[in-house]
Every structure is written in C-alpha cells, then in structure tokens.
Design a protein around this nucleic acid. Structure first.
Length: 481
RNA sequence: GGCCUUAUCGUCUAACGGUUAGGACAUCGGCUUUUCAAGCCGGUAAUCCGGGUUCGAUUCCCGGUAGGGUCACCA
C-alpha cells in the first residue's frame, strides 16, 4: 500500500478498558494486532485504557491478561511486564495528557467548557428533538474562561470539512463534516477521554498500525483533526469488521449474550482451536485449508485479507475446529489435556480414543463429561430387564447369548483380554446368529447401561476382564429373575 | 433524522471483468453398523433489486432496499 510501511518497524497495540470481561470481539481485535506484529517481527503492546473511573470493574485487568494468555497471545510491553514506554495504564500517564493539552491550549486548539453537564444535555436533547445531529460547536462559547482543570477541556475544531482517508482494510473512507465536533479532551475529573488519550499514547509508544472496530469510523475525523492540530503523522488505520451475534443481525455485545471469553476455557475448548476459530471470523487466507496452528496463522496473516463485511459466528464450526485440533495433538499433550477434564477414576489411557472419537457429539469436553456417557467406568450400570433385549428376541436367547459371551471371556487369559481379541471373539459368536444385535446389544447394554454408548469391545477392554464378567453375570441374573 | 458503511449457498467465505460461481460448517442421502457418534462417498443449496459502463459483469458506476455503525465528561 505504502512503501514506507515496509521500512519502519511495526508496532501494534491492544488497548482494552477494564470495564468487565473480554468477549470474542475484543480477543479477535487483539489477535489480529498481535499476529500482524508477530509476523513482521514488530512490537505488540498491551495498554489499559482506564480513564473512566465510574465504569471500571475490579479485577478486569487480571481477567484481560488471563484471557489473552490462555489463547496464546503475548506482548512485548504491557502493564504486567513494563517496557520502554511505561507506564501502560492511562491512569498513570496523566502528565503526558496534561502536557499535550497545554500545547493545544497555547496553539488555540483547546478551550475550557463553561457549561454545566445539564446545559450540554439540553443542547443535545434539542438537537435530537429537531432530528439533527448534536454538535457542541454550534454552542461554542465566545469567551471561554481560562482552563483551571475543574472544567472539561474541549478541542476546538478549526478546519470544518468532510474528511477522507485511507484504511488498510476498507480502502477509501470518508465522513461528513457532521462527524467533526469540539470533543472533550480532558474531563472535569482530570482524566482524558479515549479520543485524546489514545492518540497521545499511540504517538509516545510509536504505534504504527491501529486496528479497531468499525464503530470508530465515524470518529476518525475527530482523530484526524487532532493529528493535524498537533502536527503529527497519522498511523495506518485498519478497520476490523464487526462480529455479529448468533442471529446474524446485531453486532455482538455483552448484553446480547456475548460470553466471557474464559468460559470457553472452562468448557474445555483448546486454545489453539479458539485461535483458529477467531482468526477466521473476519479474515481468510484465500486457501482451502481451514485448520491452522497458531504458527501457521501468524505466517499466513495479511491485513489486506481482512474481511470488510461483518460476520456472525457459529459454534458448530467451533466444535468442528476443536475436534480437528484435538486430532492434531501429540499423544502426551492429548492425554494431559483430556485428563484435566476427567474425574480421577476416568484418567486412564484407554479412554482417550473414545473421547477423541465422540467429542463432537457434545461440542466440548465439559459437556461430554457432564452427559454421563463416561460414567459406566466407575458406576455399576442400572437398567431394566427389557432394555437388555434386542428387538423381539426371546429372553431365553438373550440369556444364552450372554452366557456364551461370558464363557468366551472367562476362557480368555487376562493378558489377551484386549479390544482386538474381544471384538474377534464376540463377532465370531455374533456371526452365527440370525442378527448380530442379539448378542452385541445385550453385551453393550450390560456393560454401559446406556441407550447410546461406545461399542461393547472398547467398553469391555476398558473395564477389564473381571469387571466385564461381573457385569455380564449381573445382566444374566437380572434377565433370569 | 444527519453522516458513514456493508450486501455471494442456512452460516463463514473464495473469485482482484471472461470459472460448469470453488471450499468449509450445517443439512440431506448412501456405505459401515449392536446404539448414538465418528469415518468414507455423494447430493441439495448463493451472487438483494433496478438501471448503466462493457463484446462480456459477483466484480466498475448510479439509484433503491435491507443490515450495521455513529451523532457521550464510554471506549
């Protein structure tokens, strides 16, 4: 796009405000900024925009850090690790904002707001009533008082025009002069607004690429006029597409069901799968491969492949991606990951294939454990006599079949009692019947007590010879009673 | 209401004027089969509407429609 882009070192940032948990929208923004910096051997900064004391939620910063770390995003500079441009919390950078505020006042680009909040509110209401956009500058005081820090400080727009600019994702963008107003630089409580603070911070931290959601397009003229007044170069802008809610209509937000990002961790999704999933909401590398490791994603990532239009997300796809990532896991990691979710009694190697094979039925591993499908292992199954019967097979036949299975199992040596042998023995018996279900169904049911479960071979293998025989005996006596 | 912005299968998307409009998820069917899954194979399914530019528009332009954003001492 611009030859200079390649020359300078890329510096990106993610700058959330600590007003609660992060949802996938925020993480996605962080992910792209992180990936872009990483791909270009640049710097990725985490900055906390805590200038709104009223909305601040205790513990948010830890929560943000935890969320980012879980998915595998790391940063070169941030509030927890410091860096050359410390501090990384806006509430600790007040002197900087003061400094630039004074420069703006001196240059005639800022003035104190003499109105009370109620007065401004009435101006606004009048504009709304008249169905016009609210513009403070229409009420700009002629002789504003000297700013003493108790009033809010406003930017004075002098160049009222329609701005046009280039966006790395959206291309040519513009906004009407209505988007330009005397916005507040510093609030009456002494804290700067986002509009002011982020520009100063980006300047001081050397941010080269600003990535954010499309809700900032309309305020870009404000930023542009401030860059002009300060006489500083604008960074590159990359506007990210919104993530829509599941209904595909409204933009995703906390009020319409956006989950705390860490919920996905609690449900047992794999962080690499989550990253893969989020990467594709709003970006596409143009190849057919869709399962990407974090490394592959970073290497493939390009700003010009970021989507323009908003996209919804569907958890079906997330479940599928999760399953594919589970398949990618090396054996030891797979075991570690799965065991984390299993009750102690279920933490045995043989159960792993069952989980890998059947997880997509439940979406996430937490759901699978909670379904009770795995309980057969440590809980003696309970069932009714009829449940053991396959279709309309006579009870006597079922009993006889269970007895022949029992006989074969009893004769099998402990060390030969494995899935392959069990299957071979059982299938030999089954093939002599008019229907394989006449033996396979009752054996499976005797072992699991479930209408839907893994096959009887793996069940017997996991339970072991002794327990398998116990359960078959129990089934036979249940049927005989 | 002003300003801005977006528009391809149900969903996420590929296509940078010429393709039988491709892929993935979902869905449907088949195979497999003791159940539910999984796996393999196959099918259905899309360029919002109307004008223009062009030999030729999903692609470029204009209008309409629909969605989204914004108009805070929130970010």
């Amino acid at each position: 796009m611009n030859d200079n882009t390649k020359q300078q070192k890329v510096v990106t940032r993610f700058a959330p405000s600590p007003t609660g948990f992060l949802h996938i929208g925020g993480i996605r923004t962080a992910l792209y900024a992180w990936a872009y910096a990483k791909k270009n051997n640049g710097t990725f900064i985490l900055r906390i925009e805590d200038t709104d004391k009223a909305r601040e939620v205790e513990g948010s910063i830890d929560h943000i850090i935890k969320s980012l770390k879980w998915i595998g995003i790391d940063w070169n500079e941030g509030p927890d690790i410091g860096g050359p441009n410390a501090p990384y919390k806006q509430s600790e950078r007040l002197e900087s904002y003061q400094k630039y505020a004074k420069i703006l006042i001196e240059k005639g680009f800022a003035y104190a707001d003499p109105y009370t909040e109620a007065e401004v509110e009435s101006f606004r209401n009048k504009a709304i009533e008249e169905k016009r956009p609210f513009l403070y500058r229409e009420h700009r005081p002629e002789n504003p008082p000297v700013w003493d820090g108790t009033q809010s400080l406003r930017f004075k727009v002098t160049n009222i025009k329609s701005y046009e600019w280039e966006d790395l994702v959206r291309g040519h963008l513009k906004a009407g002069a209505e988007a330009l107003d005397d916005f507040i630089l510093i609030k009456s409580d002494g804290y700067p607004t986002y509009n002011f603070a982020h520009i100063i911070d980006d300047l001081e931290m050397g941010v080269t690429h600003v990535m954010r959601g499309d809700e900032f397009i309309s305020s870009t003229p404000k930023f542009l006029s401030l860059y002009e007044a300060l006489g500083i170069k604008t960074p590159f802008f990359a506007t990210l597409p919104p993530i829509m809610g599941t209904d595909g209509k409204k933009k995703l937000g906390k009020r319409d069901g956006a989950k705390d990002f860490l919920e996905y961790e609690k449900d047992g999704y794999l962080p690499s799968a989550m990253m893969n999933f989020l990467a594709f909401i709003g970006w596409n590398p143009g190849i057919e491969k869709e399962i990407l490791t974090p490394e592959e994603f970073v290497n493939l990532f390009e700003i010009n492949q970021i989507q323009i239009s908003g996209g919804g997300y569907n958890e079906d796809k997330l479940d599928w991606i999760n399953k594919e990532h589970i398949k990618l896991l090396p054996e030891d990691e797979l075991e570690k990951y799965i065991f984390e979710w299993l009750p102690k009694e279920l933490q045995i190697k043989k159960i792993i294939p069952i989980i890998v094979e059947r997880i997509s039925k439940f979406g996430d591993i937490k759901g699978m454990v909670e379904s009770g499908e795995l309980n057969f292992f440590y809980k003696e199954p309970e069932y009714k006599k009829e449940q053991l019967v396959y279709k309309s097979t006579p009870i006597e036949t079922i009993i006889a079949n269970l007895k022949s299975a029992l006989e074969v199992f009893t004769m099998t040596e402990e060390e030969d009692f494995n899935k392959e042998n069990i299957k071979r023995f059982l299938m030999e018996l089954a093939d002599n019947l008019e229907n394989r279900g006449q033996i396979l169904h009752p054996v499976r049911f005797a072992l699991s007590g479930l209408e839907k479960s893994p096959d009887p071979f793996i069940l017997a293998d996991i339970l072991g010879k002794t327990e398998t025989i116990n359960r078959l005996n129990k089934a036979i006596s249940t049927l005989s009673s």
